[in-house]
């Protein structure tokens, strides 16, 4: 027999801003429990890079691309740390919440998938930005900071951290062990960022090796932020921005589909 009883009438939910803000509050609280891991470690690492490659080695190099070597490497060092901060924030947050199962708190709540993703990404951008600001402050002590275009600088920090935040979510959902969680950092992030033009221009590479730079996505991110900071950009105008926006769109849709299908989230 057909059940003709009417459903409970509730106003349709708009954006759950409080819920979204709560995801941010919770993740900030988790991040602030490990300040050494979240901020001090990347700052020390950046300081060592600045000192050794920029100051000690760079002291023996006259100029590169028309600027001091330290000014040339600083944007790349900053971007490497932004990428690492973004990826580690989202991958560890998702994996930890799956591992301990408190992801279920979010799953039983009236939050849309976009709200869940936006909440996570907000903290990713926050952590990456704080990391970046710390490195800029260090750069100031070495008189190595220039910002030619602040809007472009902001675009690169926010968009690249969002790209790697989304990648981190994918890895966090896919991983079934801490070993798997660390694999992309060891085999992908660290090697590609190191050879992505942080310390050299493409011109400095032998001809037969130059394709590796053009094929490396990190090259475009590093060049982009270098262009925004010191005006030296080896990529055609708009190519890096286009690739970054395309990556953002593809990764956003991928992550949304993973959430909607419950991949790694639901039993």
């Amino acid at each position: 027999m057909q059940d003709t009883r009417k459903p409970t009438l509730l106003p349709k939910m708009g954006v759950n801003w409080i819920g979204l803000g709560t995801i941010v509050r919770r993740e900030v609280s988790r991040m602030m429990r490990v300040p050494i891991q979240a901020f001090i470690a990347p700052w020390i690492s950046a300081l060592l890079f600045i000192f050794i490659f920029g100051f000690v080695v760079g002291g023996r190099i006259a100029t590169i691309g028309g600027v001091r070597y330290l000014e040339f490497v600083l944007p790349g060092i900053l971007m490497m740390n932004v990428v690492n901060a973004a990826f580690l924030q989202s991958s560890s947050a998702i994996y930890f919440s799956r591992f301990i199962k408190f992801i279920e708190e979010i799953l039983v709540s009236p939050l849309s998938y976009w709200e869940m993703i936006a909440g996570s990404l907000s903290v990713v951008v926050l952590r990456a930005s704080i990391t970046g600001v710390g490195i800029l402050i260090m750069g100031l002590f070495f008189h190595a900071v220039q910002i030619q275009s602040f809007p472009l600088f902001l675009f690169w920090v926010v968009s690249v951290s969002a790209v790697f935040g989304l990648l981190g979510i994918i890895v966090g959902l896919w991983s079934k062990s801490f070993e798997q969680l660390n694999m992309p950092v060891v085999f992908f992030l660290t090697p590609l960022s190191m050879v992505g033009g942080v310390f050299n221009t493409v011109e400095m590479l032998p001809d037969w090796l130059r394709w590796t730079a053009w094929a490396n996505p990190f090259f475009y991110f590093i060049n982009g932020i270098r262009g925004a900071m010191i005006g030296v950009d080896e990529t055609p105008p708009g190519l890096g921005v286009g690739l970054t926006l395309l990556s953002l769109a593809v990764l956003s849709i991928t992550v949304w589909r993973m959430y909607a299908k419950g991949y790694g989230l639901r039993e």
Partner: peptide, 29 residues
């Protein structure tokens, strides 16, 4: 419309009891 008391302790173990309850209230808007 639903509240769930789970069998397992599926919470962030480093958070305080008040935080855990507060965050849940926040998720519910």
């Amino acid at each position: 419309l639903v509240g769930l008391c789970t069998q397992e302790f599926n919470v962030d173990p480093f958070a305080t009891g008040r935080q855990i309850v507060d965050w849940m209230g926040g998720y519910f808007g």
